[in-house]
């Protein structure tokens, strides 16, 4: 199965283990990821806070390339996904965008990675590859804001209750807990600009995950992962309560269940090391 792949800027940096685990899982599942040629940054929140046209033109130049390739495009980052979908909707509506020459066919779909894996690869193909089921691992799935919101842009069926990641983890054999915070906000760039505000938002997620009976939080976005994983010492100090919650990419969990030998290397890159929990559950 061939698809265009838009990695996003974090994949080679703060989210390196995400990029590595995406590549491993794609290889195992037989997905041929064609990295979008010469892709450039989607502009993220900084572009839409600054100028409407900039916020469309930056992602749109990538869509022109994807349009020529004509393959469905898979995006592992929620923020990139959102900006690309915004520009795609605008192009389809005939909006004139700076730098785009026209003739957009739009004969391809843009999918967030977890939706793609669940909807296009599917349960049967995932199950076939599971060699080490994640039995006993209690987790909640955290999607963040932009995979589903706003549904007018993302085409999400249920903006408050996405299920693709939950379904994937269940197929891997994990014990997936239900909670109402699947699509709450991780604080985005506030971890840098207003850290105390962001920490409070993240603390709420930890408390709710704990209440749901989860030992770990599964994620599908570099910003969500980094925000939740990196600052647990500061969040603990601010809250007066110790947090030590492994924040694990959904693709790392797939790799683990598929028996990918590199998994250990991915986990070593985390701030809160998930390996003690995984060993305790007999999964490593």
């Amino acid at each position: 199965m061939e698809v265009s792949y838009y990695p996003g800027c974090s994949i080679e940096g703060i989210a390196r283990e995400y990029g590595e685990s995406v590549a491993a899982v794609a290889r195992i599942l037989g997905i041929d990821l064609k990295e979008l040629e010469d892709w450039t940054c989607c502009g993220a929140a900084s572009a839409h806070a600054t100028d409407d046209m900039l916020a469309l033109a930056l992602p749109a130049r990538n869509l022109e390339t994807a349009d020529k390739a004509g393959l469905d495009m898979v995006v592992p980052c929620a923020a990139c996904y959102s900006r690309l979908k915004h520009a795609d909707k605008a192009l389809r509506a005939g909006t004139k965008i700076e730098g785009v020459n026209g003739g957009y066919k739009g004969d391809f779909r843009i999918k967030h990675l977890v939706d793609f894996i669940w909807e296009e690869v599917g349960e049967k193909a995932i199950l076939e590859k599971v060699s080490k089921p994640l039995s006993g691992l209690k987790a909640v799935c955290y999607y963040g804001c932009l995979i589903t919101r706003p549904p007018r842009i993302t085409d999400a069926v249920d903006a408050d209750n996405p299920e693709s990641m939950d379904n994937i983890l269940k197929t891997l054999g994990a014990e997936v807990k239900n909670w109402s915070y699947k699509t709450d906000c991780c604080g985005a760039e506030h971890v840098l600009t207003m850290p105390e505000v962001a920490w409070k938002m993240i603390q709420k997620l930890f408390d709710m995950a704990e209440e749901a009976g989860a030992d770990a939080i599964a994620v599908a976005c570099p910003m969500c992962q980094s925000n939740l994983d990196t600052h647990q010492d500061e969040i603990s100090a601010q809250a007066g309560k110790q947090y030590n919650v492994p924040i694990i990419y959904s693709t790392e969990l797939m790799g683990l269940a598929f028996g990918a030998p590199e998994a250990d290397k991915w986990f070593a890159r985390h701030f809160v090391d998930p390996r003690p929990l995984l060993r305790e559950k007999g999964l490593l």
């Binding site: 800027c9 080679e12 010469d38 892709w39 450039t40 940054c41 100028d51 900039l54 700076e98 730098g99």
Partner: peptide, 16 residues
């Protein structure tokens, strides 16, 4: 990062 399309991105900034 080194991207060949760097010029196109600079142009977008200039235009907007």
């Amino acid at each position: 990062p080194r991207v060949r399309a760097g010029r196109q991105v600079k142009n977008i900034f200039k235009k907007v």
